[in-house]
Design a binder for these strands. Structure first.
Lengths: 168, 168
DNA sequence: TCATTTATGATGCTATACAGACTATATAGT
DNA sequence: ACTATATAGTCTGTATAGCATCATAAATGA
C-alpha cells in the first residue's frame, strides 16, 4: 500500500492517514454551507431538497426505496415527508398493488418549487468548484460520482451501521 | 438493483443539481463506515482520532488553532479533549507566553496509540478507494485535497453557521 | 487603571438520528 | 384456509451532538 511515495502531485504531502477524511469532511462542509444558502426557504432545508429531488428524478416506488437511495432511516423519512406534505410539496399516494406501501409523488407546486431551487443549487455547486479549472472539476465530479456509486452499491442500507462489514 | 443509472455514469452530465451533494455525502458516509471500524477503541472515535492526529502532525499552538483546523466548535473541543486527557492520550500544557492558552500535546502513549491506529486508518482509506485504478485514486485524492484547502481557506471559522449566518 | 479582546471552561437547550414497539398488510408454509 | 413470518410505515423514547450563553482568567491597549 501507500508508503513514503510522495510524488503525489501538487506538493509532497506525507499523506497522513486520516487526511482523506479531513479533506472529504472539509469539502462536504463547504458544500453544505453553500447549499444551505441555496435552499433557504425549502421545507426541511437540505434534506427536504434532496427528498424532493429524489422523488421527482428517481421516482422511487415507495418510501423505503426513497430512504435507501438517500441513505435516510425510515423513521427519519417519516417526519421529513410530513414536513414536505404539510408544505404541499409532495403527496403520499397509497400503492394499489401493495396497501402497506405508499408512493411519494410531487405536486405541481412541488415540481415548480424544485425547478426554481435547482437553479440556485446549480449555482452553488458551480461556486464550490469555482477554484478549479473546468476539466479538473469535470474529472473530480466523474471520479466522485464513481466512488459514490461504488459506496452506495456496497451499502445500500439505510443506516450507516447496518452494513458496515465490507465495502468492496 | 442496477437500473438505468448505467447510462448516466461516466459521461453526459444531465447532472441533476444536487447530485454533487448526494455523491459527496455518499462518499463521506462510506468513508465514515470504514473509519469507524478502523478507530474502534479510540476514545471519542473518529473525532478523537482526528484531534490526536492534528495534535501530533499539525502541532497547533493552542486549542483554538486546533479547533479551527478541524472546524470543531471550541465548546465541543473542550469535552473532546477531556476524554482524550482522561484516557492519557494527550495533555493540556499551559503556554508560558500566554497563560490563557493551553497547548495540547500528545503523551508518549498517545503517539504510540496514534501510530498503531494510523496503520488501520491507512488500510481503511485504501479500501475505500479499492474500486479505482491507482492513478485515478491518486488524481481524486489530489483534487479533493485542493478543493478542501480551498474551502478551508475560504471559511477557516470554527462553526459552520458562523460564516454563513443561519442554519435552518 | 479600566475597558476590551482573547482563550478556555461550564451549563442548558434544541435538533436529529436511531432503536424499539406497534399497526396494517402481504407472503410462505402447512 | 390458517397460521407464522416478513415487510411498509408510523410513533415514542432516548441518546447525543452541537450551539448559544454565561463565566473566568489573562492579555492588550487606551
Amino acid at each position: 500500500m501507500a508508503e513514503v511515495d510522495e510524488a503525489v502531485e501538487t506538493h509532497a504531502q506525507p499523506a497522513v492517514p486520516g487526511d482523506l477524511g479531513w479533506n472529504l469532511g472539509m469539502v462536504l462542509r463547504g458544500y453544505q454551507v453553500l447549499f444551505e444558502d441555496a435552499v433557504e426557504g425549502m421545507p426541511s432545508g437540505i434534506r427536504g431538497y434532496q427528498v424532493l429531488s429524489a422523488v421527482v428524478h428517481k421516482d422511487p416506488p415507495n418510501q423505503q426505496a426513497l430512504g435507501v437511495h438517500l441513505a435516510i432511516d425510515r423513521t427519519v423519512l417519516t417526519y421529513l415527508l410530513d414536513a414536505l406534505v404539510s408544505a404541499g410539496v409532495v403527496e403520499r399516494v397509497p400503492d394499489p398493488t401493495d396497501r402497506r406501501a405508499r408512493k411519494v409523488i410531487a405536486t405541481a407546486g412541488g415540481r415548480q418549487m424544485l425547478s426554481a431551487y435547482e437553479k440556485r443549487v446549480a449555482v452553488a455547486e458551480a461556486e464550490l468548484l469555482s477554484g478549479m479549472a473546468d476539466d479538473e472539476a469535470k474529472t473530480l465530479g466523474a471520479l466522485v460520482t464513481r466512488l459514490a456509486h461504488h459506496v452506495h452499491r456496497a451499502d445500500p442500507g439505510t443506516s450507516p451501521c447496518e452494513a458496515m462489514d465490507h465495502l468492496q
